[in-house]
Amino acid sequence: MNLQTKIPLKPQQPKIDYDAELLLLGSCFAENLGEKFEYFKFKTLINPFGILFHPKAIETFLWMATQKEKYTETDLFYHNEQWHCFDAHSKLSHPDQKQLLQSLNEALDQTYKKIQSATHICVTLGTAWVYRLQALDMVVANCHKVPQKEFQKELLSVEEVGQCLQNSIGLIRSLNPNVKIIFTVSPVRHSKDGFVENNLSKSHLIAAVHKTIAADNNCGYFPSYEIMMDELRDYRFYDTDMIHPSTIAIEYIWEYFKQTWISEEALKTMHRVKEIQNAMAHRPFNPKSKQHLSFLQNLEHKKHQLQQEYSFIKF
């Protein structure tokens, strides 16, 4: 008796190993994956502009980064005692205008360099719903709690999403023709749009992604959304808000990602990193005991061995 449908997955190439350079962009699920890579000490850059929910925001960010554009004071606005940029998430917002400008432009420089060296870029699409600031006729990445009457809500068509993805791929390839681009659709349900509207949005994203990657051999797709919807079809796999995947669900999807994209050699190294991470999290009953001092000595030896092999790994 089989009580669960399974999403068939094939191993993908090129594999991610500890020589890989990773850039993750997009919705909060990009951060879920990115945190896993960070925990296992891969060379990772996650959402330099914070969470970007829709493909137009990702395209705008990539344009600014790859074209070496810079933000100036005219690109910022003051609201609720902070300076903001409509192209970035509110986590970059700051009471000091110069500090925000510095953060934005440093993030662009960092991204430019990372795209050049990247072996894999993961793009997670959250929604096809966008908000257009009517005063400037521009689609924003984040509304920053500006009154809703200032915006017009729009649904990007399949064709518009596809154009954003093609433009994004072109911008990335202008700096790095050989990088592998992995698309995925976020399993997070955007319930504030409405459940019917969320499904409509996700369908536009999925249709556009598949049309895009069918024409590009160096793009791939990882079915995060499908695993959540078709394998983890139970509310026990959601967080308390019933919208975001739970810790168990994220771990489950991560296990699939590992099987699909990560090399056998890297999996062995990940096991060693996890042993060290677990040991570092250990809290002894008697910190001065011989047993614990021996434990610490052994831990330092394991760290040293790993860092001899991978100089970039820091604990």
Rank of each mutant, 00 (worst) to 15 (best):
L100Q: 13
A57R: 09
H89T: 14
V139T: 06
C122I: 12
W63M: 08
P55E: 09
L125S: 10
G34E: 10
Y78T: 05
Q99G: 09
N80F: 05
K91Q: 15
I115K: 11
F53G: 02
E69T: 11
L155G: 00
D109S: 11
Y78W: 01
N47K: 06
N142T: 06
G50M: 14
K70T: 14
C143P: 05
Q97V: 02
W63D: 05
Q148V: 14
A57D: 01
H54G: 02
W83P: 04
L104D: 08
K70V: 12
V146D: 05
C85Q: 07
E150H: 13
V140A: 08
E69I: 04
F53I: 02
T124V: 13
Q67F: 13
K114M: 12
R132H: 04
S90C: 14
V146M: 14
T44H: 05
W83N: 07
D75M: 03
L165W: 01
Q110N: 13
L165H: 03
Y112M: 09
K145L: 13
F151N: 10
K113S: 14
F37C: 14
Q166V: 13
Q102F: 07
Q82K: 13
F37V: 07
H54Q: 00
V130F: 04
K43Y: 05
K149T: 09
Y71V: 04
F42M: 12
V158E: 00
F77D: 13
G162D: 10
K41V: 10
T127I: 08
N167H: 07
